[in-house]
């Protein structure tokens, strides 16, 4: 398990989480996946607070896949908090959500999201999406240096 190579999936729907995990497996992404189920847990994880204090077990991710509609703190709230937290301003965050609503897309970009993806319903498309996501953000993309 390398510290600088991990995906944090913020997803409350177990079905979606399972299908995304399956797509990641099928896409042969070797990157370890960590999952939290709500917005507050996402913030705690990223801060290394509480149950997530152990950075070996819960390393800072190179990529966050963030759902919009989440319990406790919404995806946009998490995004706003991340961008206003000095140590996390450069964290790569990709929205992965079911909403195609114009205002969600606009707001997410306004808050500084790196990319906005809509969860496809067809599994084949989900696989395609995860493949290109991994290729782009984990292989081609030159990530910023993150502290913590």
């Amino acid at each position: 398990m390398t510290r600088d190579h991990c995906i944090l999936l913020v997803e409350d729907n177990a079905d979606d989480a399972l299908l995304i995990e399956r797509a990641i497996r099928k896409a042969n992404l070797i990157t370890p996946l960590h999952r939290v189920e709500d917005g507050e847990a996402a913030c705690n994880y990223l801060m290394g607070a509480g149950a997530y204090a152990d950075r070996i077990k819960h390393p800072l991710p190179t990529l966050v896949l963030l759902d919009l509609k989440l319990p406790k703190r919404s995806g946009l709230e998490v995004l706003r908090w991340v961008r206003s937290t000095p140590a996390l301003t450069k964290l790569v965050i990709v929205m992965l959500t079911s909403s195609k609503e114009h205002r969600d897309v606009e707001e997410a970009y306004a808050l500084g999201v790196n990319s906005y993806l809509v969860k496809p319903i067809a599994p084949a498309q989900m696989l395609e999406l995860i493949k290109s996501l991994g290729l782009y953000w984990l292989t081609h993309n030159e990530p910023p240096a993150t502290s913590l």
């Binding site: 729907n13 079905d15 979606d16 399972l18 299908l19 399956r22 919009l68 509609k69 959500t97 079911s98 909403s99 195609k100 609503e101 969860k119 319903i121 067809a122 599994p123 084949a124 989900m126």
Partner: peptide, 25 residues
């Protein structure tokens, strides 16, 4: 209302289709 439809109605559909496909494949 539309927002809810957009978010919540899609999720079970992804489940149905996703697992039916996973089963098949």
């Amino acid at each position: 209302f539309s927002y809810t439809i957009s978010h919540d109605l899609r999720a079970p559909l992804r489940g149905m289709q996703g697992f039916a496909d996973a089963l098949k494949v």
